[in-house]
Every structure is written in structure tokens, then in C-alpha cells.
Amino acid sequence: MIEGLSRNAARNIFLGGSIIFFIIFVGLTAHSHYYIVTESTDHEGLTDQIKLGKHVWEKESCINCHSLLGEGAYFAPELGNVWLRYGGADNPDAARQGIKQWIRLQPLGAPGRRQMPSYDHLTDEELDALIEFFRWTSEIDTQGWPPTISG
């Protein structure tokens, strides 16, 4: 196939094609940006508390053990739907309490079990914000992922 092609023709196909595909890609991500802000997430509902929660999530680098919407370290459970696993859809107060208690219990020290470090240095305000961030995340329209509640 390659014998009939000159080097300059190959270069022009590369340059032209790459530019076209890049423009399509940028256009589609621009549309996706709009879609995220208007349809799939509660963009209006991004309160200061949720922003603080995301900051706590990042400051503690939770993603290097857990995953969030399937991205992360796969060493610890998925947390994109942790709010739903704790029954947050039906009973938000119980879910809030349950998740908070679980984090406060760490490290469990259970033998033979992966150890989550202590997060005693987080204030109640920070923990509440983190949990609110989980609630907000669980409401993202993820095209039906994950397939089961186990995450």
C-alpha cells in the first residue's frame, strides 16, 4: 500500500487529517461541556460546601486508593455511588451519619484487611462537606454506570 504514496503526500495527509480530527474533538468536548453544565450534573447546586468537599477529597488524595466514577487506584471501593450504597436516596440523614461514622472508625485494625488510614485530623465541617460532595457526585447522569450497587 505504501509504495504508491510519496513522502510529501503522507505528510499532507497526516497534517490535514490531524487538524480536522482535532477540530471535531474540540467541538464535541465543547458541546459536552455545555451538556455537563446544563443536563447531566447539578451545576447550579454546586454550593461552597460541595466545593470544600471536593477540596478535601483532593487534599487527602482519596483517589490513590479508591475510585470515583471508575477512575482511581482500584485498591479500595468505588465511591461515586457510596451515597446510594448507604441508602442516601431514601434516608439522607442515616447515610450522612453512616458514612461519617465509618470514616471516624478508621483505622479499623482488623487483621488481614486492607487498612484505611486515620482521618481524625479532618474537622466535622470537612467531613460533612466531603459527604455532601459524595451526594452531589451520586446524582451525576453516568449513563447507568455502575451496573450494580457494589460499584
Binding site: A10, F14, L69
Partner: peptide, 30 residues
Amino acid sequence: EKWLYVIVGLVLFAGLLGTGHHYYWIGTPA
């Protein structure tokens, strides 16, 4: 160098929109 242009063309033609396989379940469109 002719091969090189063909290969890098394939890399970007497939790779740019191939980003789509990371955009399935994060709140991006179907």
C-alpha cells in the same frame, strides 16, 4: 520517514476521538 508520517497520522486520527472511550460514564453525552 514515509512510514513515520503514515503511522503518526494513524496515531492522531484514531487517538483524538479515541478519547471517547474515557467519556462513557463520567457525565458526558451518550
